[in-house]
Every structure is written in C-alpha cells, then in structure tokens.
Amino acid sequence: MKRPWIITIIICLLLIGGGIFVIRWPRTVPFGQCSEVYRKYAGMEGVKASFVKDFYINDTLCVDVTVLVAADTSGWNTLKNDFCLPVLDSVTQRKIDSGKDLVFMAIRKKGNCCETADLDDTECDVRATSFLNRTICLFHVKSLKERSIVEHYSLDISINNSKKK
C-alpha cells in the first residue's frame, strides 16, 4: 500500500527538482519565449524579423538575438523612427552610399529602444545597426560580463588575429 505513495513522492521530487533546474539554468532547457521586439515586428510589413535563442558568441557565452531587416524604404524609415537612429552627416552618408558599411553600436535599456542604458544596468540590449544593409541586431544580454563580451567582440577578434600573425 505504501508503494504508490513512495513512487508519487519520488516523481514529485523529480518534477520539482526539474522545475528548479529550469529556473536556475534557463538556457539549459529552452523554455524562454521570443523577445518583445520580435513579437512587435514579426508580422509587420516592410520588416523581416528573426529571433535566435542562445546564439553562441564564443565557446562559453550565448545570448538571445533579435534581427530586424528592412525589406523596403518604408520599413527602414519605421525602424529609424522606432529605434531613434541618428541622422547621418553627409560625409558618413557618402561613405555608406559608396558601399562602405559602418555598423554603429549602442547600449539601450531593456525594452526601451531609445533610452541609453546606465553603466551598471545588468540587463540591457546591445544594438548594432548596419546602415548599408539596413539591419538592426539586438543582443539581449543579462549581465555586465555578457555586455562587455558582445561590445568588445570585434576588438577581441582583431587582437587574436594580430597575435596569430
């Protein structure tokens, strides 16, 4: 008679332990939902939205990334307005028109596309905008360490490449 209760208690403990495991290490079990930015632009005309959960930046770090690509001029104008992208000066615009891309990086508060994040904000979005390709990548970081790694990614790559030479 006691066996069903023992089995029930064991299963309950396993399920509770599994729940704690999922909460403690959320990236191990993909239970996360899409970002709010993705959900906002998913069905929008003129904008192609993608969301990647746990994109590996390096061997140890993975972040969620929302990618927005403007399909036409109206979509690009919408993105520029929504994300408060800076108006480029004539010199920069000429460079871009000549085919030289400039990817601008900005740190924005989580959930707020226009407000700059504070230095000690752990959860924020690293926004990378390519004016030539009309794309915006939002890296949703959850700690200062992740933020630092994403910010200095290209610099680290350059350093590593120069060391190899």
């Binding site: 993909p30 969301f51 990647v52 959960k53």
Partner: peptide, 8 residues
C-alpha cells in the same frame, strides 16, 4: 548554426 530559432 547556433541557437534555437523561433521565427515564423
């Protein structure tokens, strides 16, 4: 590639 894709 990397990550779990959740795109329509």
């Amino acid at each position: 590639g990397d990550g779990l894709f959740l795109t329509k």
